[in-house]
Design a protein around this nucleic acid. Structure first.
Length: 304
DNA sequence: TGAATTTGACCTAG
DNA sequence: CTAGGTCAAATTCA
């Protein structure tokens, strides 16, 4: 562990900005929490303050923790990579990687190969007739998968860079002939505060499931504070509109249109029919007989 | 023209 | 070594 300034030296300008932004946000939330706590003795005043701030104490704590987590993740990753460089690490892999990229093509602006393959630390799979879930996703890759007819598309949260949200998802059409169902694997929960659709993450939580099947209107994000019922759409959510990945384009357009109608209604995540946790620890099955009588047999196996 | 998507190369776990 | 996940330049789109 180095000093903060040592860390800071290893951060790019962009990373510094992000870290600072996260810390400032955290500070702001902490200040709000402080105001709430100071009003603790006066329930009516506290209620009024809470209303004014549009956030409860619990929500503020969540935001503060989220801010710290993101910042720490940022600093930790930088520190790890920089320690390689500083110590002139003998890490064969690292040297090999650099040689490799050097020989293949001109050195890119930012070093490549500094990413770690994700482990399914927090992953769950959804089988759904639509790839929509109310979140903004950007496609960053597509791969042909062995023994699969359809390619797998990779999406990351559109808030990855501005809010450090690490959520990703993989979308693959089911193998069954004529199937218009998609297996969507979510990896990592959203830490961004862009949308008011956190219900799905809550639903996925084994502890709170059953009590949160109904949409939860949360006003704990600034965007929803500005427009409580209308998440910021702009282009981030374009993927959700057009973003039926390529392998999804043959989905009957009329049916797709029908689904579109649900996108920003109050129950975006109820599109999900069955949810299977694939963390290796838990197995969940949500029978949410919902969209126009879609029925699923729940026979899908865990894919992770 | 900026943003999103595509796609081939790069990288890592197994 | 291979398959799968990610990156980023090139391309497409609005």
């Amino acid at each position: 562990m180095g000093t903060l300034s040592a860390w800071s030296e290893n951060l790019s300008t962009k990373e510094k900005k992000k870290v600072i932004k996260q810390l400032v946000e955290g500070q702001d939330y902490a200040n709000q929490l402080q105001i709430l706590l100071r009003n603790n003795d006066n329930p009516s005043q506290q209620q009024q303050t809470e209303h004014h701030l549009s956030s409860t104490k619990e929500q503020l704590v969540d935001k503060i923790l989220s801010s710290f987590n993101q910042t720490l993740a940022e600093l930790t990753s930088v520190n790890v990579s920089s320690s390689h460089n500083q110590t002139g690490s003998n890490d064969d892999q690292l040297v090999k990687s650099e040689d490799c990229s050097e020989s293949r093509r001109p050195r890119p602006k930012e070093k490549r190969g500094c990413y770690k393959r994700k482990r399914a630390e927090q992953a769950w799979t959804v089988v759904s007739p639509t790839t929509q879930d109310g979140h903004g996703w950007r496609k960053y890759g597509q791969k042909e998968i062995l023994n699969s007819k359809h390619p797998r598309s990779y999406f990351r949260c559109t808030r990855k860079y501005d809010q450090g949200c690490q959520a990703t998802k993989q979308v693959q059409r089911l193998e069954e002939d004529g199937s218009q169902m998609y297996r969507i694997t979510y990896i990592g929960a959203h830490t961004c505060t862009n949308h008011s659709f956190k219900a799905v993450w809550i639903i996925s939580d084994s502890e709170s499931r059953g009590t949160c099947m109904a949409p939860i209107e949360r006003h704990d994000d600034r965007c929803s504070n500005l427009a409580p019922t209308t998440p910021v759409v702009k282009q981030e959510t374009k993927e959700e509109m057009s973003g039926t990945p390529n392998d999804v384009t043959d989905l009957d357009s009329a049916m797709w249109k029908d689904f579109m109608g649900f996108e920003y209604c109050s129950e975006p995540d109820v599109m999900i029919s069955n949810v299977y946790s694939c963390t290796g620890i838990k197995f969940r099955n949500f029978e949410m007989d919902f969209v126009n009588g879609f029925e699923f047999d729940g026979s899908d196996e865990c894919v992770l």
